[in-house]
């Protein structure tokens, strides 16, 4: 579910378009946007405290084959929540699970990782080594 939530919507749409037959489903809970209070910790490790809220969109659906899918995605995209829930349901189908795990989940995780790695290599280019300058001492000593 994390991979589906973090995926770019365009990548999810591509994965959806690549499905052989589009599954039909009923809403258990149609998409709705709300908030999540995000907590941090004092000093990074201590007492939890509220940093602020983030928008989140959630939905629940049931496919015709009976699987229930849940989507919780940060932001306000109802389509993103819908596709996340739909793939969550399809991934529970014994018939499709193995294939979708490779074709969708692993592929989306790979795309995410590729973007992360590309950004990381640029940050790495800004790594600096500071040298402490000698102050006032005799350089020959």
């Amino acid at each position: 579910m994390g991979v589906l939530a973090k995926a770019a919507l365009t990548d999810l749409e591509d994965a959806f378009a690549a499905l052989n037959d589009t599954p039909s489903f009923d809403w258990v809970r149609p998409p709705e946007t709300g908030l999540v209070m995000v907590q941090g910790r004092a000093g990074g490790t201590g007492q939890p405290f509220n940093v602020g809220e983030a928008t989140v969109t959630r939905c629940t659906l049931r496919t015709d084959s009976g699987e229930t899918g849940v989507g919780y995605v940060q932001g306000r995209s109802k389509r993103h929540a819908e596709l996340a829930a739909l793939f969550d349901a399809l991934l529970q189908s014994p018939k499709l699970s193995a294939r979708l795990q490779t074709d969708v989940v692993e592929r989306l995780a790979g795309l995410h990782e590729r973007r992360r790695a590309a950004a990381s290599r640029k940050v790495k280019a800004t790594q600096v080594d500071f040298f402490t300058m000698v102050r006032g001492e005799d350089p020959k000593a």
Partner: peptide
């Protein structure tokens, strides 16, 4: 907006 949940504390490590 309604609040759906409180997050687990984020891990800045």
């Amino acid at each position: 907006l309604a609040r759906f949940a409180t997050s687990q504390p984020i891990d800045t490590a």
